[in-house]
Amino acid sequence: MLALIDTHHHFYDPAAHYYPWLNDAGVPPHRYGDHSALKRPYLPADYLRDTAGIDLVGSVHVEAEWDPKDPVGELRFIASLREQSGLPSVAVGQAWLHQPDAPSTLEQLAAFDFVRGVRQKPRANAAPGGPPGGMTDAAWLQGYARLEPLGLHYELQTPWWHLHEAARVAAKFPHTPIVINHAGVPSDRSEEGLRAWRTALAGMAAHPHVAIKISGIGEAGYQWRPDANRRVVLEVIELFGVDRCMFGSNYPVDSLCASYQSIFENFASYVAGFSAQERAQLFVENARRIYRIAP
């Protein structure tokens, strides 16, 4: 059995805390469609049940879109879960880089010894074209400049049509690591859509301090499609190389698409022809290095 560090999952409790996407009525639709099944607590006990049979050796909690008025509160909650269960190994916090309070927020997040980076989904267009996105804003760039001195990396989740803006950010800040979430979000699986996605990802892959998580590759309106997702996985690895790719479950969100075991059995089958060392890099070693997870 392959060991695994899961580089992308979420813990949350909408019964005790405020998450707009889980608590509010009339929120924008989820990219997978109806997400009402997710509007319940998802805590370490639930995660351990879902990962039963997986040789889990570490995990990364990624901010779960907690109340944006109190991003530090989420990490206090995660700290309490770590004390109770030992999970997650490390975490990625929420930070709104364009806000005036970003410097204080980043300093408070960096003070948690298990926080490795921050995520904020920058302002983006709903489709290709349109005005520039949030990564071009001067205030956002000022906030981004504060990451490196604090030892934080940036977790990037944005549609592929904004990756050219991210590539300019990567060039401007070559010492701030970037981890792309969800394989660059290849939501359009047409040939034209996949070509455009691959071209955009190639621009990011040209920067050696950019890594990528192969996670969250489900599709709206479908259960997990093994053949369609095989192409995405293998093209990402081809672009970034084995030493800059990692696997993540995006659980419980991707429970809308497949079981945990099914997702990772598929990931394992896609790379079955790789060497044992390459598989170890993809499933454990890259995550251990990039997220600084002790054995």
Rank of each mutant, 00 (worst) to 15 (best):
W140V: 01
G143A: 06
Y144L: 02
L147H: 08
E148A: 15
L150V: 08
G151M: 09
L152P: 12
H153A: 04
E155K: 05
E155F: 12
L156V: 10
T158Q: 12
W161T: 03
A166G: 06
A167T: 05
V169L: 13
A171V: 03
K172G: 03
F173E: 06
F173D: 03
P174Y: 04
H175K: 14
P177A: 10
I178V: 13
I178L: 15
V179R: 07
V179F: 06
V179N: 14
H182P: 14
H182G: 14
A183K: 13
A183C: 15
V185T: 13
P186W: 09
P186A: 11
D188H: 11
R189Y: 10
S190I: 10
E191H: 10
E191S: 15
E191G: 04
G193L: 08
G193F: 07
L194A: 06
A196N: 04
T199W: 00
A200M: 04
A200K: 04
A200E: 07
A202E: 14
A206Y: 00
H207N: 10
H207C: 05
V210L: 06
I212Y: 11
I212G: 09
I212L: 15
I212F: 09
I214F: 06
S215Y: 00
G216L: 01
G216I: 00
G216C: 03
A220N: 08
A220V: 04
Q223I: 02
W224V: 01
W224G: 03
